[in-house]
Amino acid sequence: MKFYLAIFCSAILLVNFSCASRTSGQQGGIQEGIKGTVSVKEGNFMPGPDQKPGGNTGRVTRRTVYIYAVTTGAQAEGEGPLYKAIHQPLVAKAKADEKGFFQCKLAPGVYSVFTGEDGGMFFASLSNGKGELNPVEVFSKQVTVCNIVVNHKAVY
């Protein structure tokens, strides 16, 4: 019974959005959850004679990162990679700093990670064989790296 009470209390604490972006000079980090970098790619990424190797590689960016209970395409409104509504519980959110870095303390489990885009849209370009949108698994006492490339305005 004490075990379940401890899990319940931990879940309540997580609902308080225990995510934060790293600020300059801030030391340390989380012991369990996700961290990563948000970058944006816009424009032409097609190979060709006028493209320089390593030319248009994208740039890091500030974004709000939304972490939902694992979400399938059927639980989201819109046509990927942009969604206008997510019909799953919002677990947490974090803000990526000027270097694109974000981190968020999360309990072990599987989550769907989205970025906030213009017009109140949510971006997730990846899915797995189960139809889960941008799934990220957090393991006990580990930090999962979740690098996000926002590329809905890119041509490949």
Results as ranks from 00 to 15, higher is better:
residue 82 L to S: 03
residue 82 L to R: 07
residue 83 Y to S: 08
residue 83 Y to G: 13
residue 83 Y to R: 11
residue 83 Y to Q: 06
residue 84 K to P: 07
residue 84 K to F: 14
residue 84 K to N: 15
residue 84 K to Y: 14
residue 85 A to F: 06
residue 86 I to L: 09
residue 86 I to R: 13
residue 86 I to T: 06
residue 86 I to F: 03
residue 86 I to S: 05
residue 87 H to R: 15
residue 88 Q to H: 10
residue 88 Q to W: 06
residue 88 Q to M: 14
residue 89 P to R: 07
residue 89 P to S: 01
residue 90 L to N: 01
residue 90 L to T: 01
residue 91 V to G: 00
residue 91 V to R: 09
residue 91 V to W: 02
residue 92 A to H: 04
residue 92 A to K: 02
residue 94 A to W: 09
residue 94 A to D: 07
residue 94 A to L: 12
residue 94 A to K: 03
residue 94 A to P: 05
residue 94 A to R: 03
residue 94 A to C: 15
residue 95 K to A: 15
residue 95 K to G: 14
residue 96 A to Y: 14
residue 97 D to L: 09
residue 97 D to F: 12
residue 98 E to L: 14
residue 98 E to I: 15
residue 98 E to G: 11
residue 99 K to V: 07
residue 99 K to F: 15
residue 99 K to Y: 15
residue 100 G to S: 02
residue 100 G to R: 03
residue 100 G to A: 10
residue 101 F to P: 00
residue 103 Q to G: 07
residue 103 Q to K: 03
residue 104 C to M: 03
residue 104 C to F: 02
residue 105 K to E: 08
residue 105 K to D: 04
residue 105 K to Q: 10
residue 106 L to P: 01
residue 106 L to C: 04
residue 106 L to V: 00
residue 107 A to G: 00
residue 108 P to L: 14
residue 108 P to H: 05
residue 108 P to F: 05
residue 109 G to E: 00
residue 109 G to H: 03
residue 109 G to R: 04
residue 110 V to F: 02
residue 111 Y to N: 10
residue 111 Y to S: 13
residue 111 Y to H: 11
residue 112 S to E: 08
residue 112 S to R: 08
residue 112 S to C: 12
residue 112 S to F: 03
residue 112 S to D: 03
residue 113 V to G: 05
residue 113 V to R: 04
residue 113 V to F: 02
residue 114 F to Q: 09
residue 115 T to R: 00
residue 116 G to N: 04
residue 116 G to D: 05
residue 117 E to K: 00
residue 117 E to C: 09
residue 117 E to G: 11
residue 117 E to D: 13
residue 117 E to M: 05
residue 118 D to A: 10
residue 118 D to F: 01
residue 118 D to R: 05
residue 118 D to E: 14
residue 118 D to H: 08
residue 119 G to W: 01
residue 120 G to A: 13
residue 120 G to I: 04
residue 120 G to P: 04
residue 120 G to H: 12
residue 121 M to H: 13
residue 122 F to C: 10
residue 124 A to S: 09
residue 125 S to Q: 12
residue 125 S to D: 10
residue 126 L to C: 02
residue 126 L to N: 11
residue 126 L to P: 02
residue 127 S to I: 00
residue 128 N to Q: 08
residue 128 N to Y: 00
residue 128 N to F: 04
residue 129 G to T: 13
residue 129 G to Q: 13
residue 129 G to W: 10
residue 130 K to L: 14
residue 130 K to M: 08
residue 133 L to V: 12
residue 134 N to P: 07
residue 134 N to F: 05
residue 134 N to S: 12
residue 134 N to W: 07
residue 134 N to A: 06
residue 135 P to N: 09
residue 135 P to H: 06
residue 135 P to C: 04
residue 136 V to G: 03
residue 137 E to L: 00
residue 137 E to D: 09
residue 138 V to K: 01
residue 138 V to P: 01
residue 139 F to M: 12
residue 139 F to Y: 15
residue 139 F to D: 11
residue 139 F to G: 06
residue 139 F to V: 01
residue 139 F to K: 15
residue 140 S to D: 09
residue 140 S to A: 14
